[in-house]
């Protein structure tokens, strides 16, 4: 299992990287953390002539909070840095709670946030978190920069809205309102494996304690992360109690045609959806023990 021959180029600046992307086009793959790309190269399922290695572009990594309260994460930021970041824990607790579910320590030490999003594995955690948070994905090419809403970014299995000449450079998470709560749960064959089914959820309550804005995202189920609109609608305006959760989560599989693979049938995924939706929402809505 040795990769086919390729040439390697590691530009020092984003501008050089973007120019190389134009120059090599379809013959090139972008190497960030490599934790998904290198295995497929070892299996010779990918045989690029060029690898454009982003790892020397220091400006692409980093976590900061903008004046707007947004959390901005550079595409080359390693999972481990997000996992350990106190800023992330404060500014987006959902993202923080999803990180330990991403593979294993050694993978998180190399794997990057941008790499995971661009790879667009439908069973991955981070795309679901981005969708739940309405994150903006910032793409750049020699043509310029553009912002893509998470809801528009994930187009299908391993498919994104990113153009061939574009790089994902930054992910922006809107400010996390006071009082927003979250839940995150997934089921995989083993801890660290890709999810068979998972739920990322955020819930806000109004002053009367009624559920206001709720976002419930399922991943691992269809070809991309998906908002469970029926659940969100059913939950809004309720007291968020156990009966309300059970009733709302019952709609989780509505309108979805889950995929089937040798780890899980479509029926099993359909059965997990309401169960995990209920449990994730319960995490979000159950008063935390102090």
């Amino acid at each position: 299992m040795k990769p086919a021959p390729f040439d390697h180029v590691a530009p020092a600046t984003l501008e050089e990287a973007l120019a190389l992307l134009v120059e090599h086009g379809e013959n090139a793959k972008v190497l960030a953390g490599g934790q998904s790309l290198v295995p497929v190269m070892a299996l010779r399922l990918a045989t690029p002539a060029w690898l454009i290695d982003l790892n020397r572009i220091a400006s692409l990594a980093g976590i900061r909070q903008l004046d707007t309260g947004e959390l901005a994460i550079g595409a080359l930021t390693r999972h481990a840095a997000v996992e350990r970041s106190e800023l992330v824990a404060r500014a987006n607790p959902l993202l923080a709670s999803a990180m330990p579910w991403v593979a294993h320590t050694a993978i998180r030490n190399r794997g990057t946030v941008g790499g995971s999003l661009v790879h667009a594995d439908p069973a991955a955690e981070l795309p679901a978190v981005c969708l739940a948070c309405d994150a903006t994905l910032v793409a750049q090419s020699v043509r310029g920069r553009r912002a893509i809403a998470a809801a528009a970014f994930f187009r299908g299995m391993f498919e994104t809205a990113l153009g061939a000449d574009e790089l994902l450079v930054e992910i922006r998470f809107p400010a996390w309102p006071d009082g927003r709560r979250h839940g995150f749960i997934e089921i995989a064959r083993r801890h660290g494996d890709f999810a068979i089914c998972g739920i990322a959820a955020t819930v806000e309550r109004d002053r009367a304690g009624r559920v206001g804005d709720a976002r419930v995202v399922a991943f691992g189920v269809v070809d991309r992360p998906v908002r469970l609109a029926a659940v969100e609608r059913a939950l809004a305006g309720t007291d968020g109690g156990e009966d309300a959760l059970r009733s709302a989560a019952g709609a989780a599989a509505d309108g979805l045609t889950p995929r089937a693979d040798h780890h899980a049938s479509a029926e099993y995924r359909s059965e997990l959806l309401p169960v995990l939706a209920r449990r994730a929402l319960a995490q979000a809505l159950t008063p935390r023990r102090r």
């Binding site: 299992m1 390697h8 590691a10 190497l31 490599g34 934790q35 290198v38 295995p39 070892a42 299996l43 690898l51 290695d53 790892n55 481990a80 294993h104 320590t105 050694a106 993978i107 030490n109 190399r110």
Partner: peptide, 25 residues
């Protein structure tokens, strides 16, 4: 292919899979 961990080494102190990095990196 990055699953078993037998090739784990410390890169600047952090464990990484040495089968999922190219030496040039």
């Amino acid at each position: 292919h990055g699953v078993c961990g037998a090739c784990t080494v410390l890169l600047d102190g952090a464990p990484v899979r040495s089968c999922l990095m190219f030496a040039v990196q």
